[in-house]
Write a protein that binds this DNA or RNA. Structure first.
Length: 666
DNA sequence: AACAAGTTGTTTTTT
DNA sequence: ACAACTTGTT
């Protein structure tokens, strides 16, 4: 059989050399940022100010000036963002830019830690726990400690994990955190501290690493192991960090440590767009960057090339009212345009109908669905709209919110794969064993204990074979052992492994989800396809934990992709992107800002910045909409006032409109 | 100890 | 509307 490999086609041959006209392509501030190569640089880049373009040209400039692309590190908020930049840089100076190291802090930490795990006393094959895995572990430890009795009113697993994570990301401790912000949980301080210690030990003993550990371990590595830090610093001679306003202190320490040998760091960010404080991010990182790196050169990009003047006027008006003054005002480069509109709708259905109709009209006018996005504060805000779009045959993708990888059945399949990669992964064992008939938490624990010494799949099979057999699960255990042995060999491609697990799992799936298993089987088919794209199980597992596929399953026909796809997205997931037309829905006080954040001034401010981010995504058209006549169960009140962020804005900046529906009901 | 049915609470954003 | 927890039955 003939074999061959396909590689992405380079947009420019790598040997092609021509001078890039930096002066002609960039404005003076962008030019300064792109051509200041050595030493610390802080770029304060307003929305739409050509930040990406600037970074792309800087990568090109570095490569052009003879820097080996492998010595450049580009830390971004998503891997997609890094890939996009490197693709564009490659188009300028050749495909070698693909060798630039890039990705998120978490994925970079993952790569470095796999190489250096032994220095930290860990196995390179450690397993990454996602949020729900962490919750499972904490829940287990919580009931073991007898903290699940009702009368204690001990916090639930998600609240506990939230606290542990927040403490890490804010570089503080659980007691300090409780004192300031979680006073109502103070009575549980001792138990929580003990639980946290137990959680830590549990992970360490089983080679489990959660998201926060990735950052902590990398920080420890560059802080406490001078030789490793020096080595990394020599490897990555030029470091660029995008979205710096959404980094936390740990990440700042990591940057500081990585650059120890040279100080060649460019941080790029916008304090007005800081929207991740719930993850411990602080826009003060930007202010403090010059403290971390003395002699920092500060460059501001304040020219906006994205939006029309009226849209920019609204953006400036929104941020103008912020409690803390921001460092810049955007100047428009594009001409006039239609004004943004604040649209009042009778109720949620009316809002959905309005959005849907307006989108259809735009399409008639020649605006591709690819150029339109609907943005919202919380993922569930789009549920009703999704139904309406489906009825109207408008194809869309949804970003943010629940991911396909987080569904129970996909996690079940993944758990089998994780066991093979790390037989000590207690979380996955628990999950897999519970699937068997007649096995509950107790028995699962017992079986896992029986396997405790097993660190290879051979030993696992041995262990399962010698487990005392009684009851319904006897056969199932044998089958499980056979499956694990079957999928263990490294030669078997990941796609094939997943296919075999799915074959093994499907009967159970039908049993568990008698009602809706066809849909779930489709998901698993999709997952087999995804797995087929990977060469190694390790990279598949890392990606599933750190960069899971964001598209909501392949339920879109190819023909529809041809004519374009509407985007529905949380504002958080829309960061860094832009569209011709933007709709921001549910601009109701209590939803946006969320009632959950109304009690704290800082949190209200963050929500304000969130609206600023939403507004500045728009190039030409912007609609803000809100329904009245809403009872909100969660908030326990009747909503219906437009968001405080737009109340009182002059009509000249944000004209108010009202949807009048005619022609009876639909 | 496991499972099924019934009850109570809880809602964001993401690596 | 859904998930987590509780109670009752096998």
């Amino acid at each position: 059989m003939e074999t061959y490999t396909l590689r992405p086609r380079a947009e420019a041959p790598s040997d092609r050399r021509y001078r890039i006209d930096y002066e002609g392509e960039l404005n003076p501030a962008q030019h300064a940022a792109a051509t200041t190569l050595d030493g610390p640089v802080l770029v304060v880049a307003g929305a739409g100010s050509g930040k990406t373009r600037t970074l792309v040209y800087r990568v090109a400039r570095l490569v052009e000036s003879g820097v080996n692309p492998g010595q450049i590190l580009l830390l971004t908020f998503t891997r997609k963002a890094a890939e996009e930049m490197l693709r564009r840089a490659s188009a300028l100076v050749g495909a070698s830019c693909e060798q630039v190291a890039g990705g998120t802090f978490h994925s970079f930490a993952n790569v470095v830690l796999r190489r250096t795990a032994r220095r930290l006393g860990m196995k390179p094959g450690f397993t990454i726990l996602d949020r729900s895995d962490s919750e499972d572990v904490v829940n287990l430890l919580r009931s073991r400690a007898g903290l699940d009795r009702k009368e204690r009113r001990f916090p639930r697993k998600n609240a506990i994990v939230e606290i542990f994570s927040m403490a890490v990301n804010r570089s503080t401790t659980v007691p300090a955190l409780l004192e300031d912000g979680y006073a109502h949980l103070y009575e549980h301080l001792e138990d929580l501290v003990r639980l946290e210690e137990g959680y830590r030990r549990y992970k360490r003993d089983r080679d489990l690493v959660d998201y926060d550990d990735l950052l902590v371990l990398l920080r420890d590595l560059v802080r406490d192991y001078a030789d490793v830090a020096a080595q990394l610093s020599r490897t990555y001679r030029y470091i660029m960090v995008d979205e710096y306003q959404d980094t936390n202190r740990l990440q700042a320490e990591i940057v500081r440590g990585l650059a120890v040998a040279h100080d060649n760091v460019m941080a790029v960010g916008d304090d007005s767009q800081s929207i991740y404080s719930f993850r411990g991010a602080t826009f003060r990182n930007i202010m403090e960057f010059p403290d971390l790196f003395p002699a920092t050169r500060i460059i501001k990009l304040e020219e906006n090339y994205r939006s029309t003047q009226p849209i920019l006027d609204l953006a400036n008006a929104v941020i103008e009212r912020a409690a803390e003054k921001h460092t810049k005002i955007l100047h428009a480069h594009r001409g006039p345009g239609g004004p943004p509109m604040l649209v009042q709708c009778a109720d949620e259905q009316a809002q959905s109908r309005f959005i849907c109709q307006r989108i259809l009209e735009l399409r008639e006018e020649g605006v591709s669905l690819d150029d339109i996005a609907v943005l919202f504060r919380s993922s569930f805000h789009s549920f009703d709209l999704e139904l309406e779009l489906q009825r109207a045959d408008v194809p869309f993708v949804k970003r943010g919110g629940f991911k396909f990888i987080e569904t129970a059945h996909v996690k079940d399949v993944l758990a089998h794969l994780r066991i093979v990669a790390n037989p000590r992964d207690a979380v996955s064992w628990h999950r897999v064993l519970l699937l068997l008939d007649g096995v509950g938490p107790k028995k699962a624990d017992d079986i896992f204990t029986h396997l405790a010494e097993a660190t290879t799949i051979e030993a696992v099979s041995e262990g399962l074979a010698t487990y005392p057999r009684r009851g319904a699960y006897t056969k199932d255990l044998t089958h499980l052992a056979a499956l694990l042995a079957e999928i263990a060999p490294d030669e078997l491609p990941p796609g094939e492994k997943v296919a075999r697990i799915v074959a093994f799992y499907t009967p159970m799936l039908r049993q568990i989800h008698r009602e809706d298993f066809p849909k779930r089987e489709k998901d698993l088919e999709h997952f087999i396809t995804i797995a087929g794209r990977y060469r190694s199980v390790a990279s598949l597992l890392s990606d599933m934990a750190l960069e899971p596929p964001t598209d909501s399953v392949g339920n879109v026909l190819a023909a529809e992709v041809e004519e374009g796809l509407l985007t529905l997205s949380t504002i958080h997931s829309a960061k860094g992107l832009e569209w011709h037309t933007i709709f921001v829905i549910w601009l109701v006080d209590g939803r946006f800002p969320s009632y959950l954040n109304l009690h704290d001034g800082d949190e209200v401010e963050e929500e304000r910045r969130l609206l600023y981010v939403a507004v500045t995504r728009a190039k030409d058209n912007l609609y803000l909409s809100y329904p009245i006549d809403i009872y909100d169960r969660a908030a326990g009140m009747v909503l219906g006032q437009p968001s405080r962020f737009v109340q009182g804005l002059p009509e000249s900046i944000l004209p108010g409109m009202q949807v009048i529906e005619s022609g009876g009901f639909r």
